[in-house]
C-alpha cells in the first residue's frame, strides 16, 4: 500500500510538472531571469501547489499518524545555518544554468534526450559527493565569524 501510494504520488507530481511547463528549461529560465524578458507563469505553478498544501498541513497537524499509520513528519528546528544558505545559492545557480531542478529532471528523463540524462547523472554524482564535501566546508567556515544562526519569528514556528 505504501509503495502504491508513493508511486501514485510520484506519477501525479510528474504529470503536474509536465503540464505546468516545469520541464521546459527555456520557460524556467525565463521565470528566473527577472532582469530579462520575465515570464510569470511559474509563479502560478508555485501558488497552485502551495495554496492547497496550506490547508493540508492544517489537517496533518491534527493527526498523530498518517492514514497508513506512520508518524507525521516532525518540524526541523527553525535554524538558518550556513549549509542552508550556501546550498540553496548553489542549487539555484545550477537551476538557472540548466533550467532543471530535481523533480522535472527526473520527470523528463525518458524524453529529455542525452542532455537530460547527463544532467541527472551529474546531479546524482553531486549528491554522492556531498557527504565528503561537508567536513571541508565546515573547516573553511570555522575561521569566519559569519554565524548565521537566526531565531524564527513567532509566525514561522
Amino acid at each position: 500500500m505504501r509503495n502504491l501510494s508513493a508511486f501514485l504520488s510520484g506519477g501525479l507530481f510528474g504529470a503536474g510538472l509536465l503540464i505546468a511547463g516545469m520541464v521546459d528549461t527555456v520557460k524556467v529560465q525565463g521565470w528566473l531571469d527577472v532582469f530579462g524578458n520575465w515570464d510569470p507563469q511559474l509563479a502560478f505553478v508555485l501558488g497552485g501547489a502551495v495554496l492547497p498544501m496550506i490547508i493540508v498541513w492544517r489537517l496533518a497537524a491534527r493527526r498523530e499518524l498518517s492514514l497508513l499509520g506512520s508518524p507525521m513528519p516532525k518540524r526541523f528546528p527553525p535554524v538558518v545555518d550556513r549549509e542552508l544558505v550556501l546550498g540553496s545559492l548553489l542549487f539555484g545557480a545550477g537551476w538557472g544554468i540548466a533550467g532543471l531542478c530535481p523533480g522535472p529532471a527526473l520527470g523528463s528523463l525518458t524524453f529529455g534526450g542525452w542532455g537530460g540524462v547527463l544532467f541527472v547523472l551529474s546531479m546524482v554524482a553531486g549528491m554522492a559527493l556531498t557527504p565528503s564535501l561537508r567536513p571541508i566546508l565546515k573547516r573553511l567556515g570555522r575561521g569566519s565569524n559569519l554565524a548565521l544562526q537566526a531565531e524564527a519569528p513567532e509566525v514561522l514556528r
Partner: peptide, 16 residues
C-alpha cells in the same frame, strides 16, 4: 499543473 503538484504532496503527506 501546480494544483496537481500540490495534490501529489498532499497524498504523500497524508497517506505515507
Amino acid at each position: 499543473g501546480g494544483l496537481m503538484i500540490g495534490a501529489a504532496a498532499a497524498l504523500y503527506l497524508l497517506v505515507n
